[in-house]
Amino acid sequence: MNIFRFAGDMTHLISILVLLLKIYATKSCSGISLKTQELYAIVFVARYLDLFTDFISVYNTVMKLVFIGCSLAIVWCMRLHRVVRRTYNKDVDTFRHYFLVLGCFLLALFVHEKFTFQEVLWAFSIYLEAVAILPQLVLLQRSGNVDNLTVQYVFFLGAYRAFYILNWIYRYLTEPHFGRWIASVAGLVQTALYADFFYYYFISWKNNAKLQLPA
């Protein structure tokens, strides 16, 4: 465990807590893409299958349970909570995310570390996580200015993967045979997807204005 990875896990945790706070405090999920949340739930379930077979550390197990629990709670809230579900604007959340699931699964069938059930699903979850934010970014573009908590959520989500890239560089330099190429390349793609969002976020922060995304 290194500081970059720990910082990455913490910003990831913060992003999920910010989202839960927003939904719980405002009893509203406007501006949030249910499709992105469903993709993240799939990512965590597919990746943490080893939860009960490989014990790595208490921290690892606890964080996996928290991530799976929170992502399923958010999807449950947005789909079934009698108050929150009414604030979900499905006519703007129209990204066809099932194509992302299919595409990532096909890619995982061809590019993986080992051709085993767990490894293929692990690679699938890595690819899917890289693109899971797309429905949310499309929704942000469509809805123009959005409320701060949603913007903070996307910002922390992008920062977490950026920290992980530093973690992979650090581990590559310090561990002899560290070759985590699938995760590193997918992580770079994921962070690149946030790049334009980060640019507009920084501009709005510098001008102390509300985030304006080009339509």
């Binding site: 790595i56 550390s57 690892n60 996996k64 991530f67 985590r180």
Partner: peptide, 10 residues
């Protein structure tokens, strides 16, 4: 933390 060979990252 013990770094297991498998996927030890979240």
């Amino acid at each position: 933390f013990p770094e297991a060979s498998s996927h030890d990252e979240l």
